[in-house]
């Protein structure tokens, strides 16, 4: 199994406080990697360094390396925008633009310079199909995205992210604001998406990680405690802190 992303000794600091402490992790291609751990353990921070979104917050500093296909994304000549086109992101709360459904999905292509209407239309359709939303919205593509239900909005955000044809999808608790039915649909979607994409999923739900991930990593207080194939991590964790967390001692 080849590694799509590798982090080496990755640390982040907010002002002088360390949020991540020397995380080294290999993320395999076309698999779902779940990051678990109590809130505030650095899961989201870790995720945001993988497409250099952390740079948007003032006072955040990073040391260590992140290799995407063997290339260091923090190297001086690398354009963060190019990184983000390869590494897409779905956020915890759905955040569609106050535009039409069509324009939401087409946005990434438009900002990348695509003008051909036929190309845009084909891509919007494919992306909505990939996000299992096409059948629900095909007759109202030009209505506002804000009229969709919460679950539909989140799947729209997935469609929007895949429309750019990224290679990696980062998902930050994508189902945490949704009801159980919508959650199930997102989870199904993630499982189908891994055929094409490398997925890194932050989740607070042990069950979710267990259901849909192939590899799981446990973070605690900014440190990577243990990483293993999901079943192994849940059935026979090696580290005592992982065992305690899974048994519900803290979290």
């Amino acid at each position: 199994m080849t590694a799509k992303i590798e982090t080496r000794d990755l640390s982040t600091y907010y002002r002088e406080k360390a949020a991540l402490k020397g995380v080294t992790l290999s993320i395999p291609e076309r698999r779902v990697t779940a990051l678990i751990g109590p809130s505030g353990c650095g899961k989201s921070t870790f995720l945001r360094t993988l497409n250099r979104m952390h740079e948007l917050s003032e006072g955040v500093r990073v040391t260590g390396q992140v290799y995407l296909d063997g290339e260091d994304i923090f190297a001086p000549h690398v354009d963060p925008v190019e990184v983000r086109r390869k590494v897409g992101m779905v956020f915890q709360r759905s955040n569609p633009f106050p535009k039409s459904i069509f324009e939401n999905v087409a946005y990434g292509l438009r900002v990348a310079g695509e003008r051909d209407r036929a190309v845009l239309e084909r891509c919007v359709r494919e992306s909505l199909e990939a996000a299992a939303l096409w059948d629900e919205v095909k007759d109202r593509l030009h209505e506002s995205a804000l009229e969709l239900s919460g679950g539909q909005q989140q799947r729209l955000c997935v469609a929007r992210a895949v429309a750019v044809r990224p290679e990696v999808l980062l998902m930050d608790e994508p189902a945490s604001a949704l009801d159980p039915i919508a959650t199930a649909r997102i989870e199904e979607l993630i499982v189908t998406l891994k055929e094409k994409y490398t997925i890194v999923l932050v989740t607070h739900s042990m069950q979710e990680a267990r259901r849909i991930s192939d590899q799981a990593a446990f973070l605690y207080l900014g440190e990577m405690i243990e990483v293993a194939p999901t079943l192994e991590l849940f059935e026979s964790p090696r580290e005592p802190r992982t065992q305690e967390y899974l048994r519900g001692r803290f979290g």
Binding site: M53, V81, R84, R85, R93, F97, P98, Y107, G108, A161
Partner: peptide, 26 residues
């Protein structure tokens, strides 16, 4: 909302594109 700016930037939009296409219309 910051979330709209983040969504735009995460899709590979430049700052100026985010400003003209997302922030100003909103």
């Amino acid at each position: 909302p910051l979330a709209l700016r983040e969504a735009s930037l995460a899709l590979g939009a430049r700052r100026y594109q985010t400003v003209t296409r997302v922030v100003l219309p909103a």
